[in-house]
């Protein structure tokens, strides 16, 4: 059972990783919490669902879900963040909250509040692997998460866009002096962040095969904890923290503490904040936490 539980934990962790990274991109660069990310994740799920139900192949559905969520991410950046970039950090956070309310309402009106379910013929196939069994989608979820994290890491480290992002994260004013267009960079950050949340949405809606308009709320909060634990300064932090929290959750449930699960997760997050505010993998950073 333990092995099977580890597989469960890894899958959940992969989803957490993607959403946490989505939070972390905006957080690390602009120090704001984009509270609409949970809803971008949900929206990605609905898009993926609609496409798969229309027999579009998975890779295309995945890309479309990512593109859709990225697009809304850009809209959020243009309306909710850009005009308020000089305001105290709480203000853009709350305007993203406005988007989260709107998205929930729109999706409820379009797709209904009842869970949308994938027809059984599109259901996951399982591969027996010795004493355990692994779903095809589980493997896809984990693989896509790893590939996406690697791509983001590559993008940040090796490309000029990535260098610009890191420069703005380090010091916005200096970056601008060096000729980096901060506006384009923040737009890019919101777009990638949206795409990651959308990818996570498509993957989970196919893996769990049921989705509701409110699925982003609690998952979003958990992902914030994962982001904190992984740290916002290193992309790989999320890849470590996601499975860590996923497995921690699964093990608390497996060994008799399903009621204590949330206490464990948020307790862990507070502990990390107090002992290693930069996160498990975060390097030293002096200006942690801007003024609110």
């Amino acid at each position: 059972m333990l092995l099977q539980q580890l597989v469960n934990g890894l899958t959940l962790g992969a989803v957490y990783t993607l959403i946490a990274l989505s939070f972390s991109l905006v957080m690390g660069i602009l120090s704001i919490l984009n509270l609409a990310i949970g809803e971008l994740f949900m929206l990605g799920g609905y898009l993926g669902f609609a496409l798969i139900a229309a027999h579009v192949p998975l890779p295309i559905a995945l890309v479309a879900g990512m593109a859709g969520a990225a697009l809304i991410g850009i809209v959020i950046e243009k309306i909710a963040y850009q005009p308020l970039r000089d305001a105290p950090l709480i203000t853009p956070m709350l305007s993203t909250l406005g988007f989260s309310i709107i998205l929930q309402n729109v999706v409820t009106n379009v797709w209904g509040s009842d869970p949308l379910q994938l027809p059984p013929e599109l259901f996951d196939t399982r591969l027996p692997l010795g004493p355990i069994s692994v779903g095809m989608m589980q493997l896809v979820v984990i693989a896509v998460a790893v590939v996406l994290v690697a791509s983001v890491a590559f993008l940040l480290q090796k490309t000029s866009a990535g260098r610009a992002l890191r420069a703005v994260a380090e010091n916005r004013d200096v970056a601008r002096l060096l000729g980096v267009s901060a506006g384009r960079v923040t737009m890019l950050a919101f777009a990638i962040s949206g795409a990651l949340a959308g990818a996570a949405g498509v993957l989970i809606s196919l893996h769990y095969a049921a989705i509701t308009p409110y699925i982003g709320v609690d998952t979003g909060l958990k992902a914030i904890a994962v982001m904190v634990i992984g740290g916002t300064t290193r992309v790989w932090g999320a890849l470590l923290a996601g499975p860590l929290i996923g497995i921690a959750e699964v093990l608390t449930i497996a060994y008799g503490g399903s009621q204590a699960r949330d206490l464990v997760v948020y307790g862990l997050m507070i502990l990390i904040l107090l002992l290693r505010p930069q996160g498990l993998l975060g390097g030293a950073r002096t200006d942690i936490g801007q003024r609110v």
Binding site: N8, V15, Y208, I253, S258
Partner: peptide, 22 residues
């Protein structure tokens, strides 16, 4: 003595169901 629980809004109940199955 160890009823299995989850919370409203949980998208993943795989660990709970694995335990149920065992």
């Amino acid at each position: 003595n160890d009823l299995i629980s989850f919370n409203t809004g949980d998208l993943d109940v795989s660990a709970q169901v694995t335990k149920l199955k065992s």
